[in-house]
Design a protein around this nucleic acid. Structure first.
Lengths: 163, 163
DNA sequence: TTCCTTTTTAGGAATGATTCCTATATAGCA
DNA sequence: TGCTATATAGGAATCATTCCTAAAAAGGAA
């Protein structure tokens, strides 16, 4: 998952973004995990290399990367935004127990279509499927399902995982 | 879309919820629109019948209704939560221009499945598909598409529609 | 109906993620 | 190497949402 510095430079340049040590660290941290961290998670992580980096810079940078299409922002029933450097089409498994998000790649799901009648003038540019349920860890812990859109709070197991 | 008082009473009672004039008004307002209003939208609406109702009551009530499974909460790239009294399985068309949300009913989409291999121990209880693009109004206005997860702000055309 | 207990309501204060503002520092180009 | 536009840090501000509390009301029991 470690992104080559040249590759990163490449991607930034292609979208006319300036490269700074802070941005490199933020993007690197995000590209190096599949845990869909929050801005705060990323700030904690990046602070190890850049002790003076401000949360502000993390928010600003994530905004810039999002506008440039280099990161994707998700917010299902979370109290804050989560980010993903995987911008290839993929889908999500969202745990109603711990609120974790796993990526799901599935060719068949990439090809969904809607009848012209049903979409009634809406012009579709993309889609994504969210599956709800309970992750392996929460199943093991014995999590009976409540409804979707419910408010169980995450038990929070450090959403940056190993790095 | 007007919900019969008896039917509403029925639904509340079935889940052991107390019925109050405020709750009736909030649920009625939500059931009477497909525009996925925010708590604030609902507060503005309900205030017409209940001038003294507090935003607090709206938030609290929506929370109660959500826990009871009577309303669904969504938040894609919005800055606040939006609510939906349609709890039957359905999908969403999300406009990247004005941030509006339309419901989409499609039997085929209701039947998506994932291979056991791909879900790796995740126990799926439900799913929902989000389509991104531009609504008819935004297409007319000539909205060229940017990326998904982008931050165009809604032009805000009173999300409660006619009522 | 009336009483009683529990839950709801309103309102004010608090919380906390995110954004705004600004002076200084730095990237990237000429 | 110098210039200009942009990024950074940090402090203050915003604003949706939640917390706290006293008073009011719902719903069941008598």
């Amino acid at each position: 998952m470690k992104l080559a510095p040249d590759e990163m430079r490449q991607r930034f340049r292609a979208r006319g973004l300036k490269m700074t040590p802070q941005r490199a660290a933020i993007y690197q941290a995000l590209a190096g995990t599949t845990s869909h961290p929050t801005a705060e998670d990323l700030h904690r992580q990046v602070r190890r290399q850049h002790p003076m980096i401000s949360p502000n810079t993390v928010y600003y940078t994530l905004g810039v990367l999002r506008e440039a299409g280099l990161v994707y922002e998700v917010n299902y029933w979370h109290d804050r935004s989560r980010f993903d450097a995987n911008i290839d089409l993929h889908h999500h498994l969202i745990c109603l127990g711990c609120r974790s998000i796993q990526d799901l790649t599935d060719e068949a799901l990439d090809r969904l279509a809607v009848s012209d009648r049903a979409k009634a003038g809406f012009s579709i540019t993309g889609h994504r499927v969210e599956f709800h349920g309970y992750c392996a860890a929460c199943c093991r812990r014995g999590r009976a399902g409540r409804g979707v859109g419910t408010d169980e709070r995450r038990s929070d197991e450090g959403s940056l995982g190993v790095l």
